[in-house]
Design a binder for these strands. Structure first.
Length: 909
RNA sequence: GGGCCGGUAGCUCAGCCUGGAAGAGCGCUCGGCUUGCACCCGAGAGGCCCCGGGUUCAAAUCCCGGCCGGUCCA
């Protein structure tokens, strides 16, 4: 933490109430308290947990805690906001919602879009995976999934809502009045918060060893090493709903408070013995001081637990590490359910990988607990347990279960193959080192614990280094980059710069997508690049290709070849450079035939997406799309390849929507209103940074924020034919389709290809298949005949062999020049022991000798001696090994000469 | 997105480092043994060694590019 001005933490409320500022004797941080004798900050790891001793008459479940929190702030003028998905669809730089503030970044925090309400209160389910290894061990301090309850106030320069003083008052009032915590036990610890390029002072509110809330005052942007005051000052608070529940329930672990009876159900299903309450309370006492990052601290923790309860150390370790696994399974299964419910498809990259990661960690913990049942059953219990809190779980249950089953199957398969690999490695090497462990995990996905377990079966002990996962990470030098929108505009840099000076182009195609001809004023022309004050030419973007057409200047037509948009300015790329004075009016005409096809393909994309979501499930999201004149392409997220039946259903449904003649409306509305009304499935093709969104709505079918041009009614699409579907990545399926007149064109093309094939085969229509089958049969029999002849020929060759000393020399010019055939003949000839077989192959003014020796004479002759002799006699390059060699002579050698050559060589040997 | 691993018979894989006759086990077909089945014994069929290029007299093997699959990512 950098040096912070203590004034940042001076709050009127503290003065009024008589709070005093003290310094923690352990951690050294300053904190505010009403209790003069307090000398520690009351936060882990400076003190142990002791909040169980604080008398409080409340006993709040997670759901009660949330309700109380929201109500408290609602009564104090805050509007209650519905929670957002745990998948941050509106963020380009983040996969998961890691905090409530993420909901408002970057559009609200940067000042572009006003907040949906001000002040507001929200309880946002959040997922953080960076501490996934510590879940369970710390008995509840770390969770991958938690609800961050927050009251936010956005203070604009001309509109103040509330700031530090009010925030602290609210927190204090909430804790003392709602949770009925004695005033003098609440500690406000001074701290500093930084994240997402912003920073500010904060108070961490801790009671009895447990941090219950953080009150952040976002007021700086970090630029390089400097902090610059932000115009927008944001109250960003975070109250841990699960911690509040734990605090009031006073259970030995947070998991007992969060999951209630589900914990014992999981325990029974997994078959883990229930430990005595005392050891858990001993753990509770010691866990506050536990630093999970330090192996010594973990050892000390176990020692302390043993000491408190007078247990044997090994017993403590066994019980608590099993408990930790049970707790992380509880935590992970909830996370899995929430992630999948919001439509993540497990895969090997992006957010899909994060889902796979959590699923695999859960499977691993279960396997280490010796559980051989189905993870999906446990996830299903979570769905039931949380169904009233998160209705998306119930709605998406089928998909969630199916995805978990599929992932479990993949992991089992991976382990099965992996175990074989481990066995092989252990047998070969006799031991495994760290390098092996890292390699097995990194490239095969085999967790070190599983490797150790497997190799133990062969009495090979493996040491798993404490820093194993950072070793793996160090092999990945390049940091994992997050999703980015690829806005590739093919224009020279100087043109981009030049274009951005103009005012925004009026987009006529948005007002009227059917406009074909327009008049506009020239704002600038440079070389072949033209900027107008308004245009009907659609620039490449939103997956839709640009329009083509021409510009009329003084009765001359100049083709428009490409169109791009730079920061709201449309740049027309002309066929040739021209010189036109600024301010001149020109007529633009777009290639309507092309445009109309693009429009139809674009609307078709929306129709198909809607159909796919209905046929396959709500986890279907657009992962990319492109519409050209020829075809449309839509990539969707899905966990398995589509079968014929899926495709047929999607196509049928899509065509049904066309036949339905549904209205396609485009309109601009307020962003907050749009999100509220239609949800985040609006953002299929990226997230525009605009306060107002252009919405394309196909009535009762599909609503998306979209920049493209669309037909007015689905009937205009004509018809849709899906021409191809392929899995392009793990978790992504690509659909290719045509619409309108392209359907007939594609079919005509297919017909033409079939015609050409029929003609080539000499078959009449409809008999192509039979013809190919009979040709195949004929080819087979021909091959057999060739084989017969080859055998016959070999027999003749053998008969005509020359006797040279002990050897039998067969020298021949092969009839077939394929190397397989030559090798086959040589193989047959050298089945007899004393044979020296030579194939003489002449081509391209070169002669190649393929030499093969019979088994029985291998000990007498070295093929390379023959090769050397040939080199001496007539030159050439070559060599060989065993009974085979080949040599190439760069000229034609007659058969007679070759025979004499080999006869002489064999005589000499 | 990036790193790493892999692609050889229907399946599971060996061979690749160190270039020179394409292999094993299972499965399949036929035959033997057997009342029949299983086991066992014998014989056989089955390969664009992922694709393209390069190096070389010679590439499954070495090099480059691509495609496909797997896996991991502080």
């Amino acid at each position: 933490m950098t040096e912070v001005d203590p004034k940042e933490y001076e709050v009127n409320f503290f003065k009024e109430e008589g709070f005093i500022r003290k310094k923690c004797k352990i951690g050294g941080e300053y904190f505010w308290t009403l209790n003069e004798s307090l000398d520690t900050c009351q936060d882990a790891p400076c003190v142990e947990y002791w909040f169980d001793k604080i008398s409080s008459i409340r006993n709040l479940s997670v759901s009660d805690s949330r309700k109380i929190f929201l109500m408290f702030f609602k009564k104090r003028g805050h509007e209650v906001l519905r929670p957002r998905p745990v998948v941050a669809r509106w963020r380009e730089d983040l996969y998961l919602t890691i905090a409530s503030i993420v909901v408002f970044q970057p559009h609200v925090t940067s000042g572009i879009v006003p907040p949906p309400a001000n002040p507001l209160v929200i309880s946002q389910p959040s997922i953080r995976l960076e501490d996934i290894d510590n879940v369970g061990l710390t008995i509840g301090r770390h969770l991958t999934t938690f609800e961050m309850a927050a009251h936010h106030a956005f203070n604009y320069p001309n509109k103040r809502i509330y700031w530090k003083d009010e925030t602290v008052r609210y927190a204090f009032e909430f804790f003392t009045k709602e949770l009925r915590i004695p005033k003098d036990l609440i500690v406000f610890k001074e701290s500093w918060w930084e994240g997402g390029g912003n920073a500010g002072p904060c108070f961490e509110v801790a009671v009895g060893g447990l941090e219950l809330a953080t009150l952040v005052f976002m007021q700086y942007s970090i630029e390089g090493k400097e902090y610059r005051p932000l115009p927008l000052k944001i109250v960003d608070t975070g109250y841990g709903i699960e911690r509040i529940s734990w605090f009031t329930k006073k259970t030995p672990t947070a998991f007992h408070a969060i999951y209630g009876n589900l914990l014992e159900r999981f325990r029974n299903i997994i078959g883990l013995e229930r430990p005595e309450e005392e050891i858990l309370w001993a753990a509770f006492r010691a866990a506050g001081r536990l630093d999970p990052e330090s192996p010594e601290s973990i050892v000390n923790y176990y020692r302390k637990v043993a000491e408190i309860g007078n247990y044997e150390l090994k017993y403590v370790k066994d019980v608590l590490s099993s408990e930790a696994k049970l707790y992380s399974v509880l935590d992970h299964t909830k996370t899995i359910a929430l992630m999948l419910a919001d439509g993540i498809v497990p895969s090997n990259s992006g957010e899909g990988y994060l889902a796979r990661l959590v699923i695999r960690r859960a499977l691993r913990q279960l396997s280490l607990l010796g559980f051989d049942g189905d993870l999906a059953d446990l996830v299903d219990l979570q769905i039931g347990y949380w169904a009233d809190n998160f209705k998306q779980l119930k709605e998406q249950r089928n998909y969630i279960i199916e995805a978990v089953i599929l992932e479990s199957k993949k992991f089992r398969e991976l382990l099965r193959k992996g175990r074989k690999e481990i066995r092989k490695l252990v047998k070969m090497k006799g031991s495994l080192d760290v390098e092996d462990l890292v390699r097995l995990y990194d490239s095969k996905g085999l967790p070190p614990e599983i490797v150790a377990e497997e190799s133990r079966k062969f009495n090979v002990e493996v040491d798993i280094p404490h820093n194993f996962y950072s070793l793996v990470a160090s092999r990945h030098k390049a940091p994992a980059r997050l999703k980015t929108v690829g806005k590739v505009v093919k224009l020279p840099e100087d043109i981009k710069k030049w274009a951005s000076q103009f005012r925004l182009t009026e987009l006529l195609f948005h007002k009227d997508p059917y406009l074909r001809k327009f008049t506009a004023k020239v704002l600038g022309i440079k070389d072949r690049y033209l900027v107008l004050d308004s245009t009907a030419f659609y620039p490449k973007g939103g997956g839709q290709d640009y329009d083509k057409g021409y510009i009329m200047i003084n009765g001359r037509r100049i083709l428009v070849n490409e169109v791009y948009k730079i920061d709201g300015v449309v740049v027309h790329v002309l066929e040739t450079p021209i010189d036109i004075p600024k301010g001149l009016n020109v007529i633009g005409v777009i290639d309507w035939y092309r445009r109309f096809k693009l429009m139809r393909h674009h609307t078709a994309t929306h129709i198909i997406l809607g159909a796919a979501r209905r046929v396959l499930g709500r986890h279907i999201w657009q992962a990319g799309a492109e519409k050209s004149e020829e075809k449309g392409r839509l990539d969707i997220t899905h966990h398995k390849p589509l079968n014929k039946d899926d495709l047929r259903k999607i196509e049928e449904l899509a065509n049904m929507v066309i036949d339905d003649r549904r209205e396609v409306r485009t309109y601009i509305i307020n962003r907050n209103e749009a999100e509220d009304k239609y949800g985040f499935s609006l953002y299929q093709g990226g997230v525009p940074m605009e306060p107002r969104l252009r919405i394309v709505e196909i009535k009762n079918w599909d609503v998306e924020a979209c920049f493209g041009t669309h037909v007015r009614n689905t009937a205009e699409v004509g018809s849709i034919k899906i021409i191809k579907s392929e899995r392009i990545q793990d978790g992504v399926v690509r659909l290719e389709f045509v619409a309108g007149p392209r359907v007939a064109e594609v079919l005509t093309n297919a017909e033409n290809r079939l015609d050409a094939l029929a003609k080539e085969l000499g078959a009449s229509h409809g008999h192509e298949l039979k013809r190919v089958q009979s040709l195949k049969r004929r080819l087979d029999s021909m091959e057999k005949i060739v084989e017969e002849y080859r055998r016959l020929w070999i027999r003749t060759l053998k008969k005509n062999a020359l006797k040279v000393g002990a050897f039998s020399l067969v020298i021949f010019e092969p009839l077939e020049h394929t190397s397989e055939a030559i090798q086959e003949v040589l193989r047959q000839l050298t089945k007899e022991d004393n044979v020296v077989a030579i194939a003489v192959i002449k081509e391209n003014q070169k002669t190649r000798f393929e030499i093969a020796l019979g088994q029985g004479i291998l000990s007498k002759i070295n093929v390379n001696r023959i090769v050397e002799k040939i080199k001496e006699e007539i030159g050439g390059k070559g060599g060989g090994k065993g009974g085979r060699a080949s040599i190439l002579i760069p000229r034609i050698i007659s058969n007679d000469k070759a025979r004499d050559l080999f006869v002489n060589i064999l005589k000499e040997i």
